[in-house]
Amino acid sequence: MKLYDYALSPSCYKVRLMAALIGMTLDIRPVDFHPGCEHRGPELMALNPAGSIPILEDGDLVLTESSAMLVYLAAKAAAQWLGNDTAGRAARVQQWLSFSHRLTASLGAARLHEMLLRPGNIAALREQGIAALRELEAGLVEQHIRGQRFLASDRPTIADVACFPYVALAPDGGVSLDPYPAIRLWSRAVRSLEGFIEMPGIHRLHELTPAPVLEVGEA
């Protein structure tokens, strides 16, 4: 399975993270998104006329939407991540998958503006991003009251993978995460998952590894 990937893209990271969490290996094809704009070049436009990445290719199947890729990976290798065992949970997962596109359009666009100088109305993008973060915070508070640590259930699903990257990287676009304690706890729960991988801008939880004991002089 081949992923057209950019190291700094949170949407590409969703797919890499999903694969890592379920122990699946992807064939990574790096795309020079910045500064080269390779995603707008003829080869990639032929694969995805929308001119966006990630693109996931598996034989005849070409996917260009990250949520669909998460569904595909989970359905193939780890169906419990689909979170579709009850009608309510299935709907909740879909609710957050759709919501995740608002994160991309607000926090993601703010980040591209602030970091890679892409155009955009930064004040409006931040305002929309804050509205989305408040909605997520309220949702997580309610889940916590129900005794559930993740967005759709007490175990992680593709909904968490879809929402986590743009939320965790909100500060890159100048949107602080300080006001959201429930998001903070959820983010730690996601980062503590077995198999979790980072991307630039999301630091490792060093508390998960013990303090090193080193003989003096050894380095």
């Binding site: 790096p30 890159d172 630039p200 801008g201």
Partner: peptide
């Protein structure tokens, strides 16, 4: 190493620093 890999390696390093610097 392909050029894109070289670019991504260095961008990765620098963007890891960015969240410290800010």
């Amino acid at each position: 190493t392909p050029m894109t890999d070289l670019i991504h390696f260095q961008q990765t390093i620098f963007v890891q620093d960015r969240s410290i610097l800010e």
